[in-house]
Amino acid sequence: MAKRVLVVEDNELNLKLFCDLLRAHDFAAEPVRDGREAVDRARAFQPDLIVMDIQMPHVTGYELILEIKADETLRTIPIMAVTAYAGREDEDRIRAAGADAYVSKPISLARFIQAVGALT
């Protein structure tokens, strides 16, 4: 059975790239364009991993990580942040919020898949 990955990304090109890349590596990818829908979609999809952008409109990735980690049914799902925030303190802040992994944009496709594989 394919591992399930919920991808939360507001940029259409990045969302398509991440989902296509995951599917090419035999993952079941579920796209979410709006962070406000992510928690409900995660409950319905029950992913093995959540990949999310940090800089999104309406709800930030930080807020979303905190909400997911506070949810009884979702808190054990690993979260991988994929973001343009590339400084060391950015990574520390993202991990402190509860993210299990951090990949900076622009992404290396090989590093992205390696990080996904390490978390699933």
Rank of each mutant, 00 (worst) to 15 (best):
A29P: 13
A42Q: 07
V39C: 06
E12S: 13
A28K: 06
V51E: 03
C19D: 04
V7H: 05
L21I: 14
L13V: 13
A44N: 12
L21N: 12
L49P: 11
L49E: 14
A28I: 05
G35D: 08
D48A: 08
D48W: 08
D26V: 01
H25T: 04
Q55W: 02
L21E: 14
E30R: 07
L49F: 12
P47Q: 11
R41A: 12
V32E: 10
E37I: 03
F45W: 08
E9G: 01
I54W: 00
A24Y: 01
F45N: 09
V51K: 02
D34R: 06
D40A: 15
A29R: 13
P47E: 14
N14I: 01
R23Y: 04
F45L: 12
E37C: 06
F18E: 01
A29Y: 11
D26E: 13
P47H: 10
E30D: 11
E12D: 09
A29W: 05
K16S: 09
P47Y: 09
L17R: 03
D20Y: 03
E9M: 00
R36F: 02
A24N: 05
Q46L: 14
R43N: 11
F27K: 05
K16H: 03
V51M: 07
D10G: 04
L21M: 15
D40K: 15
V39N: 11
E9Y: 00
L17P: 04
I50Y: 09
V5S: 04
L17W: 10
N14W: 03
V32W: 03
R43I: 09
F27E: 04
H25C: 03
L13S: 10
N11K: 10
I50E: 08
F18R: 00
P31G: 09
N11L: 11
A42P: 11
R36D: 13
L21V: 14
V39Q: 08
